[in-house]
C-alpha cells in the first residue's frame, strides 16, 4: 500500500484525488438539484421523493458516507498541495502580471471554504433541523413520521428574504468553484488535449449552469412565493 501513499502525497496524485472526489460531488449535486426541482410539482411530490429516499437506507447511507469521505479527501489533498505551493514560492514578486489565470481559477481557495460553511449551515437547517425554526415531519404511518417534511421545511427557510438571498449568493459562489473545478477535472484526468480545451470549457459551463441554474431557480421561486 505504500505506493498508494506515495501516489496520494505526490503533487499529481493529490490532484487526481481532488478530481475524482470532485467528480463524485458533481454527481451528487446534479441528483440533489434534480430531486429538488420537484418543488414545482408541489408538496406531495417533493415530500414523496423524500419518503422514497428515506425508504432506501441501503442507498442513502453508503452515499452519505462516500460523500463525507470524498469531502475529507478533497480538503486534505488541497491542504497538502497548498502547503507545498506556498513553500515553493516563499518570497513573492514585487510586480507580477497574469496572462491566463481567471477569476474562477484564482478564487478556488476562497470559494471552497465558503462552500464548506454553506454546506454545514444547509445540513443543520434542512437535514438535522438544528437551525430550523419549525422543523416538521411528514404525517401518515410510522415511516412518514420518521421522514422530514422536505417541502414545508425548505419553503420555511427559503421564503425568508435573508436566507433566500444567502442561498442564492452561496450558489453563485458555488458556480465559480464548479466552473473551474470541472475544467480542471477534465485536464487533471488527462481527458483533454489542447484541441479539446474548448470542449472541456463548454462541458464545465454546461454542468455548472445546470446545477447552479436549477438551484437558483428553486430558491428564487420560493423567495418570490411562486412556490409556497
Amino acid at each position: 500500500m505504500s505506493w498508494l501513499l506515495t501516489f496520494s502525497r505526490s503533487t499529481v496524485g493529490a490532484k487526481v484525488i481532488m478530481a475524482l472526489t470532485g467528480a463524485a460531488m458533481f454527481g451528487f449535486l446534479i441528483a440533489h438539484m434534480a430531486g429538488n426541482l420537484l418543488v414545482f410539482w408541489g408538496a406531495a411530490y417533493h415530500n414523496h421523493h423524500a419518503l422514497f429516499l428515506h425508504q432506501l437506507p441501503e442507498l442513502i447511507w453508503p452515499a452519505r458516507i462516500g460523500l463525507v469521505l470524498a469531502i475529507v479527501a478533497h480538503i486534505f489533498s488541497w491542504l497538502n498541495l497548498r502547503a507545498r505551493s506556498a513553500a515553493a514560492r516563499p518570497i513573492p514578486y514585487k510586480v507580477s502580471k497574469s496572462r491566463a489565470s481567471t477569476l474562477y481559477s484564482k478564487t478556488m481557495g476562497y470559494t471552497g471554504p465558503i462552500i464548506l460553511i454553506f454546506l454545514v449551515v444547509h445540513l443543520l437547517q434542512l437535514t438535522t433541523g438544528t437551525l430550523h425554526p419549525n422543523y416538521q415531519f411528514q404525517s401518515g404511518g410510522a415511516i412518514e413520521a420518521d421522514t422530514p417534511a422536505a417541502f414545508e421545511n425548505t419553503v420555511a427557510i427559503l421564503s425568508q428574504p435573508l436566507w433566500g438571498i444567502f442561498y442564492i449568493l452561496c450558489n453563485l459562489l458555488l458556480g465559480l468553484h464548479l466552473f473551474h473545478g470541472a475544467y480542471a477535472m477534465c485536464r487533471t484526468l488527462g481527458l483533454s488535449g489542447d484541441r479539446q480545451q474548448g470542449v472541456a470549457r463548454a462541458l464545465a459551463a454546461g454542468v455548472t449552469a445546470t446545477i447552479v441554474g436549477g438551484n437558483v431557480v428553486i430558491a428564487a421561486a420560493i423567495l418570490a412565493r411562486v412556490v409556497n
Binding site: K15, L81, A87, A100, G190, S192, G193, D194
Partner: peptide, 25 residues
C-alpha cells in the same frame, strides 16, 4: 520542492517555446 498545478495556464502563456498545456494532462 516545486508546487502543484491548478490549471491557471500561466506557464504555457509564458513559455518562450510554446509547450502546450496538454503536456501536463
Amino acid at each position: 520542492g516545486f508546487g502543484h498545478c491548478s490549471w491557471h495556464g500561466e506557464c504555457a502563456e509564458a513559455c518562450p517555446k510554446g509547450i502546450p498545456l496538454a503536456s501536463i494532462a
